[in-house]
């Protein structure tokens, strides 16, 4: 029999038997009013989750289930009775008795304006989700003036490595790539937000090329990018040549052959060639994340 030592606080590895989890408690439920309907949700539920569970589709851009909410895009705002400003549904927790309106005139105006402000300053041509929202809310970004009148974030594409490109003219600054590169997934910290105000941007230190940065090419930033600002070099090249055609593509789920973890790969093929690899967010172990091998280690297959 081994003697169990006092816990070493500096090095808190489990030394004894594995901890036993307490039996699951039924979560306390609370009642809120959503667009006039009484809804019962578990305590700790966000307004976004509450709305979704009630079948109310709430638009999101900077939110992703696998990342910490940063509530910066403000497209998910809803109106909470008694609150002066609108609140972000993605991070605001439901409170008992809260009366929430998800489709009031104020809410619709804010959502439309957020889309117009974004689309008037950012190239959203490879962001189908934003385009769909713009149709839904009747957004007309040209109200702010044609090119030359309204300032944009237009800039040259950054192509500094073999695997992926960074086209920050398409960046809406949703912070997702920074989160995926940081504590929410990869813990590499190769990129961060630099600058301020309209000049705020995603950058390596002193804007050094990726090969000089801490980047490990896991591509998890590409996996979370909602606008195509971060893109496989293969996809970027095909789009430029006019060859990219999603109607001709098929997606096949398989298991990564490289190591024992067994990550799920979704292989995108066009004309019997692999054009990119993603991983499903719903996969409970990897939550959409891969490493350089899984995400990029297939190009040799096309070279037969």
């Amino acid at each position: 029999m081994s003697v169990q030592k006092a816990p070493d606080l500096k090095n808190p590895l489990p030394r004894g038997p594995l901890p036993v989890f307490p039996p699951e408690r039924m979560a306390k439920t609370i009642e809120i009013t959503l667009d006039g309907r009484k809804v019962t949700v578990a305590e700790g539920t966000t307004l976004l989750e509450a709305a979704r569970s009630a079948g109310i589709d709430t638009p999101t851009l900077c939110f992703l289930e696998t990342l910490t909410p940063v509530n910066v895009c403000r497209i998910c705002v809803v109106e909470v009775e008694g609150s002066r400003a609108l609140v972000p549904a993605c991070s605001r927790k439901a409170e008992a008795g809260m009366a929430v309106r998800t489709d009031s005139e104020r809410v619709r105006l804010s959502r439309r304006l957020v889309l117009e402000l974004l689309a008037s300053s950012v190239d959203v041509s490879t962001a189908p989700q934003i385009q769909e929202y713009m149709r839904r809310y009747g957004a007309k970004p040209e109200r702010f003036g044609a090119a030359g009148h309204a300032e944009t974030v237009a800039q040259p594409v950054k192509i500094d490595n073999e695997l992926y490109v960074r086209d920050y003219a398409k960046c809406i600054l949703c912070y997702k790539c920074v989160e995926a590169c940081g504590v929410d997934a990869q813990n590499t910290f190769a990129i961060a937000v630099a600058g301020r105000g309209f000049g705020a941007r995603i950058s390596t230190e002193y804007n050094v090329p990726l090969p000089d940065s801490a980047c490990v090419y896991c591509g998890n930033c590409i996996g979370v990018c909602p606008t195509g600002a971060l893109m496989f070099r293969s996809e970027h090249g095909m789009r430029k040549a006019g060859d990219w055609d999603e109607t001709r593509q098929t997606r096949t789920d398989t298991i990564c052959p490289y190591c024992g973890v067994g990550c799920t790969l979704t292989v995108h093929t066009q004309d019997e060639k692999i054009v990119k690899v993603t991983s499903p967010l719903e996969q409970p172990i990897t939550r959409g994340n891969l490493c350089i091998k899984g995400r990029f280690g297939w190009e040799w297959i096309n070279q037969k």
Partner: peptide, 17 residues
């Protein structure tokens, strides 16, 4: 503007324009 949220980051620019 710190540049974090869209209404302020782009809104202050459009207001000035």
């Amino acid at each position: 503007s710190c540049g974090q949220c869209v209404p302020c980051r782009v809104g202050t620019v459009r207001q000035e324009e």
